[in-house]
Amino acid sequence: MVSDKEPTILVFACNWCSYAGADLAGVSRLEMPPHCRVVRVMCSARVRPEFVIAALSRGLDGVVILGCHPGDCHYSEGNHYTRRRALLLKELLEHVGIEPERFQLRWISASEGAKFAQTITEITGEIEALDRRREPPPEG
């Protein structure tokens, strides 16, 4: 999407579970690729599809929504709405030619620091691979 090789990935994390999980990854000093930027929301359900579309269309390489595991949502059902919206949005994005790896939804609980690190590492890797594939062939 941009000429730079390093991707920039926007991550929405919910205050009660995934943001805390990200904090735990930090407390545990788990090393991970430095390409994500976390934006805190109170609930993953706050994230509207327009944010994802805006981010991708302005040149960000990926958007990740992190929420509480189904059943654990601090606001009881918020993450159910997130899941439904994400499913629809995914289809829409694929329809317009955006690779599915660029928009992902994952569940991270407050105690899953390792899972956060793993998730970020994985997704960064997937998006980096996509960007490499899109590189224009060398001149001549």
Binding site: W16, C17, A20, G71, D72, S109, A110, S111, E112
Partner: peptide, 10 residues
């Protein structure tokens, strides 16, 4: 509920 214990305790 299989809630993560420390998540609801912290």
């Amino acid at each position: 509920t299989n809630d993560c214990s420390i998540c609801i305790l912290a």
